[in-house]
């Protein structure tokens, strides 16, 4: 493979991995606090449509990303009220959130079908951003660099700060955390809001970084893959980074196979398109064989907490 092709492949890979990375990072924090939000796909779609609309109307992708984060967080608050305040079943409520996000994005995206959007491009000077070789470092959307910063930030928050310690305590043992005096429900609200904002940004990556137009259901299950990724990463941010890029690789494999030629060319494109989903199942199996999958999960994951007096 030539250098040019390698660089092109890396750039495609980074683009495909970034939305999953954002969504999975958010969900990791949510699950660390003991909450299982299956609505990631719905929040991503909400963020995607709002990010598109605001970028299109204002011309500023920066505003679009901020709006997508707020939209994702707002959607997550529906989930939070129903599961945390009213202690409803988290699995069912998460599903409801995904159905909501799917409907919401389809409803509001309709007006933007066929309208072109400018991509959220690199902010580095063009000599660097479009340089044939250096663009592999400088040629990405600001969102890509932001996703790396967030990996470090989430790790730092969870492992090195007091709020992170409280968040983990709430997720590991909500009863003890409550009796020491930590506000279990408030911490979980904050975690769910963060997860929603990250999923919203992840969703906004689709129109802003990948394909600059509105396509209904454009996330195509990436929110669900992000959920699997959190399990795969054993709730650790750095492994999440590796996992997201692994999935980005699987998702773009068709391109490499086509470029490389050889026997893989004859495989139907439907099979290639199925790869990320099949790989997700495979990965879930592999990690379950290797370790008891319950050892690293937050102990209170998915269980409602109701302080009564």
């Amino acid at each position: 493979m030539s250098i040019e092709l390698t660089i092109a492949i890396i750039i495609t890979l980074v683009g495909a991995s970034t939305p999953i990375l954002f969504a999975a990072l958010g969900e990791l924090v949510v699950e660390k606090s003991g909450v299982l939000n299956l609505g990631v796909e719905g929040m991503m779609l909400t963020g995607a449509v709002v990010g598109f609309a605001v970028t299109f109307e204002t011309g500023s992708p920066w505003l679009g990303v901020v709006a997508a984060a707020f939209a994702g967080a707002a959607a997550s608050m529906i989930f939070a009220v129903v599961t945390l305040t009213l202690s409803a079943n988290q699995v069912a409520t998460g599903l409801a959130l995904t159905i909501f996000g799917t409907g919401f994005s389809a409803l509001f995206g309709k007006a933007y079908t066929g309208k072109p959007l400018a991509l959220f491009r690199s902010v580095f000077p063009p000599e660097l951003a479009t340089h044939p070789y250096l663009k592999v470092i400088f040629g990405y959307s600001p969102l890509v660099y932001f996703s790396f910063i967030m990996v470090v930030a989430v790790w730092w928050l969870l492992r090195r700060t007091r709020p992170g310690l409280i968040l983990r305590a709430v997720g590991e043992n909500d009863l003890s955390a409550h009796s020491i005096g930590y506000p279990v429900i408030a911490v979980r609200y904050a975690a769910v809001a963060f997860g929603g904002a990250m999923a919203g940004i992840g969703g906004a990556c689709f129109p802003l970084v990948l394909t600059p137009q509105w396509v209904e259901g454009l996330t195509a299950g990436r929110g669900w893959i992000a959920l699997a990724l959190v399990v795969f990463a054993a709730w650790r941010p750095y492994r999440l980074l590796a996992g997201a890029y692994l999935f980005g690789l699987v998702g773009t494999m068709e391109l490499y196979a086509k470029a490389a030629g050889g026997p893989f060319r004859i495989l139907p494109s439907e099979l290639w398109a199925s790869m990320p989903y099949l790989a997700t199942i495979l990965v879930l199996v592999l990690i379950s064989i290797r370790r008891n999958s319950n050892t690293s999960a937050p102990a209170c994951l998915g269980k409602p907490f109701v302080p009564t007096s």
């Binding site: 529906i78 129903v82 069912a92 409520t93 599903l95 409801a96 959130l97 159905i99 909501f100 799917t102 409907g103 919401f104 994005s105 389809a106 409803l107 309709k110």
Partner: peptide, 12 residues
Amino acid sequence: PAVGIFQSMMLF
């Protein structure tokens, strides 16, 4: 797609 919004509201 508005139907999806009504359906999810019902479930919520």
